[in-house]
């Protein structure tokens, strides 16, 4: 499953396609202080990125995917204020 939604944590793994965008956004909308684990995520649909930018969840674990880690994660970090935990945090 590309998307696993728990009470406070969403785990995104593999290829997150447009099909995951809607449930992810819905979860972010209703979840208080959401946390998102991107460690095993290989691709993030633009819609999913957009939802993360808007709702600014805490990114609890940075992706191992090179493109996401080097180019996309800084965007999530840089967006005004969403605190990102240190990359070394265990999963």
């Amino acid at each position: 499953m590309p998307l696993e939604l728990n009470e406070t944590t969403a785990t995104l793994s593999g290829v997150v396609t447009v099909d995951e965008v809607e449930p992810l956004a819905a979860w972010l909308r209703i979840t208080d202080k959401p946390k998102v684990n991107l460690r095993r995520c290989n691709h993030l649909h633009t819609g999913a990125l957009q939802a993360l930018l808007l709702f600014q969840p805490r990114i609890t674990s940075s992706p191992t995917d090179a493109f996401l880690a080097t180019q996309v994660l800084p965007l999530l970090r840089g967006s005004s204020g969403g605190p990102v935990l240190p990359e070394s945090e265990p999963p």
Binding site: H43, H45, Q71, L75, G78, S79
Partner: peptide
């Protein structure tokens, strides 16, 4: 999927966001 397309840009040096 713009991000998917961008992930395929060869020799990508820097990505910036337009909010």
């Amino acid at each position: 999927d713009p991000l998917h397309l961008i992930s395929q840009v060869p020799a990508l040096a820097k990505l910036g966001l337009v909010q």
